[in-house]
Design a protein around this nucleic acid. Sequence first.
DNA 1: ATAAACTTTCAGTAATTACTGAAAGTTTAA
DNA 2: TTAAACTTTCAGTAATTACTGAAAGTTTAT
Lengths: 167, 167
Amino acid sequence: MNYKEAKEKFISTWGSLGTLWGINKAMAQIHALLWVSPEPLSMEDIMEELQISRGNTSMNLRQLMDWGIVFKESKPGERKEYFVSEKDVQELARQVAKERSRREIKPVIKTLREVSAIENDGSKKTKELIKQTKALYDLASNADIMMNKIVNQESNWITKTLMKLIN
Amino acid sequence: MNYKEAKEKFISTWGSLGTLWGINKAMAQIHALLWVSPEPLSMEDIMEELQISRGNTSMNLRQLMDWGIVFKESKPGERKEYFVSEKDVQELARQVAKERSRREIKPVIKTLREVSAIENDGSKKTKELIKQTKALYDLASNADIMMNKIVNQESNWITKTLMKLIN
DNA sequence: ATAAACTTTCAGTAATTACTGAAAGTTTAA
DNA sequence: TTAAACTTTCAGTAATTACTGAAAGTTTAT
């Protein structure tokens, strides 16, 4: 496997992984491309390398910037904007954890709290609904607290913690 | 919020969460319905409650059974098959972790290992590709090892571990 | 103020993914 | 072995999601 093959394989694998997570392919591929590029890339560069349209590139770059894992960079004396990804894997993990907590876990926790707080009329089905949603609420809350821990710690906390768990 | 509203809210929230994770809506909703049902439900029951077709119900129940979080149950003297979900939240988490590791993390680790193992020709771009895919490989491996820990421990390991992390 | 160089937006369209329902398949009881 | 009761499969279709490209918008240099 030469450089070109390896790079393409990485980009396409990252792209499919994204799909599996509800992140669209283009967004994941742009991230992969920037992740392994030693130099900042322009929109043209990205469009050409991934064979996608200007609009698509623009929209997905914005999303990556919203996630806080890609940044604009301007080269002195050039009008064009260049893009770079966050290169530190720890920081990447922190940002992804933070976004997923905000977008996915927090809203579901809110619903679980509301549902598990309905009045208990003593019927079997009501008791079951309360019991089961309460159990999920506890699990999701713990997961969310853990994610927030990660987000608010120094950047090598993850590795240290994982190591603790593994041993 | 009465019982019916609460149940519907839970089912629809769980459905959207599924979508966000690349699990289809029907699959997540069937799981939610079984999760809060004190009694096993037949295919008819599920079809009627969620207003979905027989084919859809059948295919998604099979997937839930593949994931190991829903089981068939037969009532003595009845031809019809009934379905129940795993009710223990810990066991649910273990099964989900196990499946996600197998389907999502393991394949990506394999690619990252292959890509990060290409020959280093000393060029800047090759060095960057190796360095960055290696960093992701390490992160993904650690995450996967942690998930496997979870899967292979006694069922309340998660809670105990989360508690340790939180304090 | 003008225009060149660039980016963003968004209506229309393409691609993907999920769902339906009827036919085929399977199991069980008699 | 037959047929009733039930489940699965899958081709066709519907719904959703992603992408394109041109027009509108923005920024910068002169």
